Computed example of a mutant assay.
Amino acid sequence: MKSTAELLGYGPNDRLLIINADDFGLCHSSNKGIQKLLEGGIVSSATIMMPCAWAREAAVWSASHTLLDVGVHFTLTSEWDVMKWGPVYRGGSTESLVTGEGYFHRDSKSFERRADTEQVKQELIAQVEMALHMGVNVTHADNHMGSLYGLQTGRHFLTEVFDVCAGYRLPFRLPRFLQLESGAPAPPELALQALKHAAEADRRGVAVLDYLVALPFHAKPGETYAQFKSQMISLLKRLKPGVSELIIHPALVTDELTAFHSEPLKRGMEMDIFRDKEVQDAMHYEGIKQIGWKELRHYQRRNSRP
């Protein structure tokens, strides 16, 4: 079996890295931080949460920067207490996707249990269409909080995801090979499931990743930037040959961010981490090549039917 890297024309030992800034459009603080990192080539790409209040700012900016890689962060959950969002689809019922207040469910488990598959598909299409209508040159899609993967109850929505991504000819964040945070292989049952999902994506002509990596979302008590940097450098050294995507959630630490977010300081660390010379030097020393999602989209569109 060829890796995604090999399908893109790279060698079997090449380590390719996509650094994606999630949660573009979440708030103004996220937008300003992510825009700065995109313009500086620090991150490879970003994905917009189209249901959020600040999505339009992110989309309009992206429409004027079409050479940068910006995708859609499929959003079907709304996790914060004081800031909420709901569906963008307006053509019919979205009842299964929302609470009594009309917002998305707070967590992935509630979403997985209640969501109607057709309503999910309609919402995914609506989010892509909204981005396209605003002029975004959509390069890929991924998923906020992993709500579509069935991680909580086993009830996934990947069939609907593949339908939408095949229709719009977009690659999707799905790892072909699962590994634990330590870098060790995932348990055989989970690893086999990931391979099956990737094989289905291949059949549908949807390009996917080899690996998906990240550091913990929540900061450990007393965690310092130096500790976080050490963890990130260690993660980079453990990258395997193939295409890996590394997820971060950068933002400027402002009153706006701290008003609703439980991890504002961690978001600030993620804003700084890939601008850090020691981290940049580690990537260079390890021979890691940074690429963007456009390479996967180009491969997918070259090899799939219009």
Results as ranks from 00 to 15, higher is better:
204 R>S: 12
193 Q>E: 09
36 K>I: 06
214 A>F: 02
25 G>L: 00
93 S>L: 15
155 R>M: 05
100 G>I: 06
158 L>H: 05
82 V>T: 15
154 G>V: 12
7 L>I: 05
209 L>V: 04
56 R>H: 08
99 T>A: 13
181 E>T: 04
149 Y>R: 06
66 T>L: 09
12 P>D: 10
162 F>A: 05
284 H>K: 15
177 F>E: 02
164 V>R: 03
186 A>M: 02
211 Y>I: 05
189 E>S: 11
35 Q>E: 09
79 E>I: 01
84 K>Q: 11
51 P>C: 01
296 L>E: 01
303 N>L: 10
251 A>I: 13
161 V>A: 10
9 G>Y: 08
138 V>S: 01
207 A>Y: 09
102 G>N: 11
202 D>G: 03
157 F>W: 05
32 K>G: 09
50 M>E: 06
3 S>I: 12
157 F>V: 00
203 R>S: 08
40 G>I: 09
235 L>F: 11
179 Q>K: 05
296 L>V: 08
43 V>R: 03
19 I>L: 12
44 S>F: 13
49 M>T: 04
173 R>I: 03
198 A>T: 11
302 R>N: 07
284 H>L: 14
94 T>A: 04
52 C>Q: 01
302 R>L: 15
91 G>R: 13
154 G>W: 00
189 E>V: 14
152 Q>Y: 12
81 D>A: 02
260 F>T: 07
273 I>M: 06
71 G>F: 01
145 M>K: 00
282 A>W: 06
